[in-house]
Computed example of a mutant assay.
Amino acid sequence: MSCDADDCFVEAAVEEPNLKFKDEKQQARFELGVSMMVYKWGALEVAVANNWGGPASAEKRDWITAIVLDLFKDGKYVDAAMIEETLLYAMIDEFDTNVEDESAMPISVGIIEIYKQCQLQDYSAVEELYNSWLEKQNSAETSQSKAVVVEEDPLNPGVSSSEESGDEEDEQEPAEDADVEMTDSRSNQPVVDEDGFELVQKKGRR
């Protein structure tokens, strides 16, 4: 189900005070869908990632989700233009960012479409959005985990390991030579001349 930006709206029945779903599952799925659409908005994602709204940027994104939901909880009529306006003003107020790429409208249309699907108790789109978000989160966590491993390891583990082993060998070899020289010097008896002085012997020959 899809609608045009100029003709994309939902309206409560005459007897209903607002657009909030009475069924808890419907309302919960709709709220999840709105949250996923807001998280999907690229302009907001960049703003949060760069902390344009300060240390509480992530919390401000959740607040934007809440004020979009309030449109449905408080009103009997909501269209895509109202949602777009809400998103754009929130970006200016909370992130000091004026979004001019018209990216808010597809998000707004998507929210209206999700509402209509939830009316029909069709939650497939919401579940698809949620699963995509989970995959993205898992991918990000995996990348961060790999980055930590790289930071802990040397820049070039192979070369580093060989260098370390080489250093160890270099340190061990002189010690072995020293042992040999010490053994040779111990095994050779000192030579004393007739005046009682010890003669210096040449090393390296046996």
Rank of each mutant, 00 (worst) to 15 (best):
V191H: 08
S145K: 12
E100V: 10
A178F: 08
S160K: 04
I112L: 05
D122L: 03
G158W: 08
E11N: 06
Q144V: 08
K40D: 15
E169G: 06
D23K: 12
E164V: 09
D167C: 05
G196Q: 07
M1Q: 07
E24H: 04
R205F: 12
K76Y: 01
M91D: 01
L69I: 14
R206Q: 07
A56S: 13
A125D: 10
G166Y: 03
P157N: 07
E152W: 08
Q26S: 05
V38A: 04
K202L: 08
D70V: 00
Y123N: 03
A43S: 14
E194S: 14
D62S: 13
Q121P: 01
L44T: 01
V34S: 05
F72E: 00
P154Y: 09
N50C: 05
Q144A: 15
Q201E: 14
A125F: 06
T97Y: 06
I64M: 08
F197T: 10
V159R: 13
F95N: 02
R206K: 15
R206A: 10
A104G: 03
R206V: 11
E102S: 11
A58H: 11
A66K: 08
S108E: 01
C118V: 15
P55C: 03
D23S: 10
E45Y: 12
D62K: 07
S185A: 15
K25Y: 07
E171A: 14
A125N: 12
D23A: 11
P174D: 11
S161Y: 10
R29Q: 12
Q137M: 13
R205A: 07
Q119I: 01
S139F: 07
Q189M: 12
D93F: 03
N138K: 13
D184C: 10
N131E: 11
N188R: 15
S139P: 00
Q201F: 02
V46S: 11
I67W: 01
A104P: 02
L44S: 01
A13W: 05
L32K: 07
W52C: 04
L44E: 04
W41G: 00
E198H: 02
Y89P: 00
E163W: 10
D62I: 08
K22T: 14
E168C: 07
G196D: 04
E151S: 12
N51L: 12
A66P: 00
V48I: 15
S139Y: 07
D153M: 15
N156H: 13
K40P: 02
A178L: 10
F197E: 13
Q121E: 15
Y39D: 03
A5I: 09
